[in-house]
Design a binder for these strands. Structure first.
Length: 585
RNA sequence: GCCCCCGUAGCUCAGUGGAUAGAGCGACCGCCUCCUAAGCGGUAGGUCACAGGUUCAACUCCUGUCGGGGGCGCCA
């Protein structure tokens, strides 16, 4: 409906071009909104107010001129100039009936558009280090990234979802050495666990697996492992200690042995993460390994591009990227004194690679702690000749778990650690996805386990699912009375849906495409969650106020067509969120 | 020191520069002889942190102040 009005307005403005207006405004300048107050009609636009200045006319006069030039449409019952110069549109009942018919016809595709014009977007999300299971914070990023991808697809973008696996670097070494120490322990060697190691429980089964695979081949006496190592925390430096321990491990079991432990750990953790996400309904087109990426020479390629642009500089034995020339607050090291490429070098190389693969928009879903990272990577991209605005980062604020009013402590390195899997197991996937998406991403999330589990009216997930199930229940009731829904009859009679409740339902229902478009554009999946609650509310209200299964066949079929339309839209919206739409509850 | 996010009803939060700022929960009062009461209706509850600025129009944009949360300083 809104699109039709936009088309009409644009036509009117084109007609006025040359006389009242110097030039036709861009389509993007036309803003049509739902009205807050039904007395102002269903839609309103402020174009006259916005164009008044350049047209050198007073807004109300301009609005009247626009209305005079507006092509006739059977969807619009009446228009008016209101207030300071708003144009209000009152829709004809036939407009809603036509939209309802469209819902029935398009079914699962209702709400989709091609606004994106096939733009190629790469959405990178989760990308958690494979050094442990996903925790509840990653869960929020997973739900957000998956739903945002769904929204972008629904609005006509070509979307690829990607997980960047940080399988190179020191954290993986620390995991490997942690596994090795647990393995030695299991074989009876007495040695302390490193302060900076991965202490959590999931490391032990990894050690068990290593033991099954290699037997005692990688066993070394504790005395040989520990001899001459610096002191660990608290007396010494835990970083220095773990680095020394990693070196000792390599010396004791050889580079191949170390690699074996590392690969086994990596494979195990990655399989765990992949399975966890799949069970959560989150899938990726691509899992990019940082290690494979580096070995392919792509980082060197990026550094060559930078060098070619004259953006690199040697200083203090290290190689620097002059990021300050691109708005970053300081220059950045890309190759350290010891010859190792930095994480930053690999990051900008990876983003260059995305761009070179043909993606014109790189969307990173990141934890809120990564905010400093964005300006750096953007600076790198610009320096390498990519448009800086192709990179867009969405920062996801943190999640706190509550059991009622009691906060559940979390910490990654410590033993206590609430995983996504534990959370899903406790509250279920549906509540999990919905609760994660209920709040704006830049709002910290307090996730109440008790609320998410409760089967009461306090729980918004069930409220929406119940509305869907209720319609299914009505249809069962219909069948049990020996009646059938006549779709053609119902849609033809839909102009009779003029009651206040019916109007409210129709109004909410037909907003769906607008919500989807807006949510995709502003990267705001929570708008869908809020909308679905409102739509469910109109359905429940209508349900309480009216009988749907009545004797008059025209009324009955029209009402059923309406509630089936609601059910369809609820199903479509829940699908975007990754929440199931049950037939009964 | 620098950076990011937030400040809206008792609580938790919505609100792409528009008309009288909304929802849920909590509180209070009502509604099943009826398609699922996991539901519905009503009442009460507001200096949109504060001060300037931009604008025909500011909860919304800009600057500053105060308050809360988080991050950064060749670590990944």
């Amino acid at each position: 409906m809104k699109q039709e009005l936009e088309r009409l307005l644009l036509a009117a403005l084109a007609r006025l071009t040359g006389s009242v207006l110097a030039e036709t405004p861009a389509a993007a300048a036309i803003v049509i909104e739902r009205t807050r107050d039904a007395r102002h009609g269903e839609f309103a636009t402020n174009v006259a107010l916005r164009l008044a200045k350049v047209a050198r006319k007073n807004p109300r006069e301009l609005a009247a001129a626009i209305l005079a030039a507006l092509p006739p449409s059977e969807l619009v019952a009446r228009t008016e100039v209101a207030g300071a110069g708003f144009i209000n549109f009152h829709m004809a009942p036939g407009a809603y009936a036509a939209e309802l018919a469209r819902i029935h016809e398009q079914a699962g595709a209702y709400g989709e558009s091609n606004r994106g014009g096939g733009e190629r977007i790469l959405v990178e999300f989760v990308s958690a280090n494979p050094t442990g299971p996903l925790h509840v914070g990653h869960g929020r990023q997973a739900a957000f990234g998956a739903t945002l991808s769904n929204l972008l697809r629904a609005t006509g973008h070509s979307v690829a979802r990607e997980y960047y696996v940080n399988d190179a670097g020191r954290q993986m070494d620390i995991l490997a050495v942690s596994v090795w120490v647990r393995y030695l322990e299991a074989l009876g060697e007495a040695l302390p666990f490193p302060d900076n190691g991965y202490r959590a429980e999931y490391v032990r089964p990894l050690a068990g697996r290593l033991r099954r695979e290699v037997g005692e081949a990688l066993r070394r006496p504790a005395a040989a492992v520990l001899a001459g190592l610096p002191a660990d925390a608290p007396a010494g430096d835990k970083e220095a200690y773990i680095d020394a321990l990693i070196e000792r491990c390599r010396a004791q079991i050889g580079a191949d042995g170390f690699r074996q432990v590392l690969d086994l750990s990596l494979e195990f953790m990655l399989a765990d993460i992949r399975e966890d996400l799949a069970e959560f309904g989150v899938v990726f087109e691509e899992w990019t390994s940082e290690r494979a990426f580096a070995e392919s020479g792509s980082i060197d390629h990026a550094l060559e591009v930078l060098r070619g642009q004259g953006r690199l500089q040697e200083k203090d034995g290290a190689l620097w990227f002059r990021a300050t020339e691109f708005g970053d607050e300081k220059d950045r090291v890309v190759v350290r004194e010891n010859g190792q490429k930095t994480y930053f070098a690999s990051d900008i190389a990876y983003h260059l690679n995305k761009y070179e693969r043909g993606f014109t928009r790189l969307l990173d879903v990141l934890g809120a702690d990564h905010h400093g990272y964005v300006a750096r990577v953007r600076a790198g991209l610009i320096a390498m000749g990519c448009p800086g605005d192709c990179l867009e980062a969405t920062l996801i604020q943190f999640v706190s778990l509550f059991r009622g009013t009691e906060r559940i402590p979390m910490g990654k390195r410590e033993g206590q650690f609430v995983t996504l899997r534990q959370l899903r197991g406790e509250v279920g996937n549906d509540a999990c996805r919905f609760f994660y998406l209920m709040r704006s991403h830049d709002q910290p999330l307090d996730f109440d386990l008790e609320l998410a589990k409760s089967r009461t009216n306090e729980n918004p997930v069930y409220y929406i699912q119940y509305a869907h199930a209720r319609v299914a229940s009505v249809m069962k009731q219909l069948a049990s009375r020996g009646l059938a829904f006549d779709s053609a009859h119902g849609l033809a009679s839909a102009t009779s849906l003029t009651g206040a409740h019916e109007q409210a339902v129709l109004s909410a229902l037909t907003r769906y495409p607008e919500i989807i478009e807006q949510a995709a554009l502003t990267r705001a999946p929570h708008a869908v969650a809020h909308y679905l609650r409102e739509l469910a509310n109109t359905l429940h209200t209508y349900y309480n106020a009216e009988q749907f299964i009545v004797d008059d066949a025209a009324v009955r079929n029209a009402r059923l067509a309406l509630v089936l339309g609601v059910q369809q839209v609820l199903r479509n919206g829940l699908a975007l969120l990754g929440v199931s739409a049950p037939e009964s509850m």
